[in-house]
Design a protein around this nucleic acid. Structure first.
Length: 205
DNA sequence: CACACGATGCGCT
DNA sequence: GCGCATCGTGTGG
C-alpha cells in the first residue's frame, strides 16, 4: 500500500501568489489514479494573478476561470490548443484571483512543460476544482529544497503580453525545466564552447 | 451565431 | 525557426 498522504494545508496556499510560487519549488505533486500513486517534484512554476496575461485579467470572472477566484489550495485545470491540459494551484484569499502554473517536475519522466506534465501525471478536466488539501486523490506535499539549489527568477513563457514581469521561477540545473534562461542564471561565456545562438528578431513568442 | 485564438508540443527545415 | 493539430472559451454582432 501507499504511504498516507500528507497534504500541505490551506494556509500554505492562501498567501500572495509570488510567495506561493517560489515556495512550491521542491514540493511534490501527488496523484492517486488507477490504484497507483504518481508523484513528481516541482522544479518550475509561473505566477498568474489579475495581470494582462492571466485568465483572470482585469479581475473578470468567467465560467472557466471561476476557481481562480475561489478558496486557495484548489486545482485549476484548463484545456488549451484543443488537446492539452495545464495544471494550476489556486492562491490568495477567496475573492482575489491567483494561481500558480506548474510547468515542470523532476523525479518522474516526461514532466517538462505544463501539458506533458499533466499527461504524465494523468491530470485532465476531471481534476479541475479539486481541493488539494484533502489528500484523497490529488495533493501537494512539502519537500524542502536541497542546499545549493538556486532559484532562478525570470519572465514567463508562451504569452504575448506582460512579458517583462519576472514571474517564472525554476531550480537551476534541474532536469524538468522547460526552458532555461542563461542570462538570469548568470552563465559565464566560455571560449571553448561555441557562441550562443541569438534568437531571430522575428520571434513573437 | 460566427469567429479568432490560445499560460503547448511535435515534427520538419 | 516554422507550421500545424484541434476545440473550448470569450467576445461581439
Amino acid at each position: 500500500m501507499n504511504e498516507p498522504a500528507r497534504p500541505l494545508p490551506r494556509r500554505f496556499f492562501a498567501r500572495p501568489t509570488l510567495t506561493v510560487a517560489r515556495a512550491l519549488l521542491g514540493c511534490w505533486i501527488c496523484h492517486r489514479v488507477d490504484g497507483r500513486e504518481l508523484r513528481g517534484r516541482v522544479v518550475e512554476v509561473e505566477a498568474y494573478t489579475d495581470d494582462e496575461a492571466s485568465h483572470a485579467r482585469n479581475r473578470r470572472q468567467t465560467p472557466r476561470n471561476a476557481v481562480m477566484f475561489g478558496p486557495a489550495g484548489h486545482s485549476y485545470v484548463y484545456f488549451t490548443y484543443g488537446m492539452h491540459y495545464c495544471f494550476n494551484i489556486v492562491t490568495e484569499r477567496e475573492g482575489a484571483p491567483g494561481a500558480v502554473l506548474v510547468r515542470g517536475l523532476d523525479s518522474i519522466d516526461s514532466a517538462n512543460g505544463p501539458a506533458r506534465l499533466c499527461k504524465t501525471l494523468g491530470i485532465d478536466r476531471r481534476q479541475n476544482g479539486v481541493d488539494l488539501t484533502v489528500g484523497e486523490s490529488l495533493w501537494v506535499e512539502s519537500g524542502p529544497r536541497r542546499r545549493r539549489e538556486r532559484v532562478i527568477q525570470t519572465s514567463r513563457i508562451g504569452i504575448r503580453v506582460a512579458r517583462t514581469l519576472p514571474w517564472r521561477f525554476y531550480l537551476a540545473g534541474s532536469i524538468g525545466v522547460s526552458k532555461r534562461d542563461p542570462a538570469a542564471e548568470g552563465e559565464v561565456l566560455s571560449i571553448s564552447s561555441p557562441p550562443p545562438r541569438r534568437p531571430s528578431a522575428s520571434g513573437k513568442r
